[in-house]
Design a protein around this nucleic acid. Structure first.
Lengths: 186, 205
DNA sequence: GCTTTAAAAAGTAAGAT
DNA sequence: ATCTTACTTTAGAAAGC
């Protein structure tokens, strides 16, 4: 059987950084083509990169949030593009701004259908949240690694809240062993 | 000092008034839903616990009261869907669901997922279906749920599909629209669940 | 608390064809 | 009846209301 760990795929990476300079978003919005800026609605300016695909939220303070990238490498590549665009507008950008990964969203497949009702009771009703009237996934919060897993009847799952790619692997291992111990993964 | 004393009384009175308002709202909604007195009592106990644990801060009294009633109905085995609950509340469905999940978690209510069979008697009586249909619908729910068909599916849609299927099998046919209306789900949902259930039961209509 | 961004999972819903 | 689009849930940062 294929190891569920091998089915892990990073779907989204959220990271934050800063250019170390204050910005006049109004003028940046004018000069940067494709920029969306509506301060009434949200204080950040939205700038999307195409390759790799991502969305950067640029703030007046010079801080930036990058989301939508498929890997940590893509986050760095996307932000490199954003930094260069800003430099083209004669804006000073620090040499190598520190980029901090804040969250990684992953998907995986256990390869078996899951009986969520049995899992809810097996894992302990106090540890899970399963309200199929509101959402089809069972919400399972792990302490180590500190991530949240959404389990579906198809055996597919989503893991979010991790800061390193290995967090998802550890989470999948723990979930698999716990379900096996309960005899709910057969 | 005298002033502080008055403030305490004022605060106490305000708190008392809020509690009375919440309890009267629970009573009003419970009456509108036609649930027994035991459910209102369970709901008020849940509300008082939420109040004691300070879970109302940042939330509306009405929202917590409605969620307490929703939880109470489930605890008492006569669930009302969020859709039904929201019709007698001035709080919107999404907010009721969120608040319910919050107080359920914080108070450790350990609520089990709603069993679709719990909706069968009420839905069937609204449709004027016989005891035979109810028994058949329960059987369909029981057997298909055992095969894992229930995972992730909404209890009302699941029950509605089983009732629709049972009505056909017992020659007391109700249209998908009629069943969809009492269960407050779409015909598409009934169609989808019905198809899966029939397949799993090895039946053909 | 909310606002905005992106992305997956699967169920449900609404409007169009 | 089927298709498309959209909304539900999870996490996290940003600045401001």
């Amino acid at each position: 059987m294929t190891d569920p760990k091998d089915t892990i795929n990073i779907e989204n990476v959220v990271a934050s950084t800063g250019i170390g300079q204050e910005l006049d978003l109004q003028s940046v919005a004018m000069d940067l083509e494709g920029a969306d800026y509506d301060p009434e609605q949200f204080p950040g300016l939205v700038y999307r990169t195409q390759n790799p695909k991502s969305a950067a939220l640029i703030f007046r303070s010079g801080k930036i949030v990058c989301t939508g990238a498929k890997s940590t490498d893509d986050v760095h590549e996307s932000l490199r593009i954003v930094f260069d665009k800003l430099r083209e507008l004669q804006i000073q950008v620090n040499e190598d701004p520190e980029i901090i990964v804040q969250n990684i969203v992953t998907s995986a497949d256990l390869g078996r259908n899951l009986n969520l009702n049995a899992i809810a009771i097996g894992l302990g009703l106090e540890n899970i949240e399963y309200e199929p009237e509101q959402f089809p996934g069972l919400v399972y919060r792990l302490d180590e690694p500190e991530v949240v897993a959404l389990l579906f009847g198809s055996g597919k799952l989503v893991i979010t809240g991790g800061k390193k790619p290995v967090d998802a692997e550890h989470a999948v291992d723990k979930i698999v062993s716990r379900l096996e111990d309960l005899g709910l993964l057969e | 000092r005298l002033r502080k004393w008055q403030e305490r009384i004022r605060t106490k009175d305000a708190g008392e008034r809020n509690l009375q308002f919440a309890l009267s709202e629970i009573d009003r909604m419970a009456s509108a839903l036609g649930v027994p007195r035991s459910v209102r009592e369970v709901a008020s106990v849940i509300y008082r616990r939420a109040l004691k644990e300070d879970l109302i801060r940042g939330r509306s009294i009405e929202g917590v009261a409605t969620s307490a009633l929703y939880a109470a109905c489930r605890k008492e085995g006569i669930p009302r869907s969020l859709e039904e609950i929201s019709e007698v509340s001035r709080v919107e469905r999404k907010e009721i669901g969120r608040t319910y999940r919050y107080i359920s978690q914080e108070l450790g209510l350990e609520m089990r997922p709603v069993d679709p069979k719990k909706y069968v008697p009420r839905f069937c009586s609204e449709l004027e279906l016989s005891e035979e249909v109810q028994t058949k619908a329960n059987e369909i729910i029981e057997k298909t749920a055992e095969k894992g068909l229930l995972s992730g599916k909404s209890p009302t849609g699941y029950a509605a599909a089983a009732i629709y299927a049972a009505s056909l099998l017992c020659n007391e046919k109700k249209t998908q629209r009629e069943v969809a209306d009492v269960a407050q789900v779409t015909e598409v949902t009934i169609r989808n669940r019905y198809q899966e259930q029939i397949e799993a039961m090895g039946i053909h209509g």
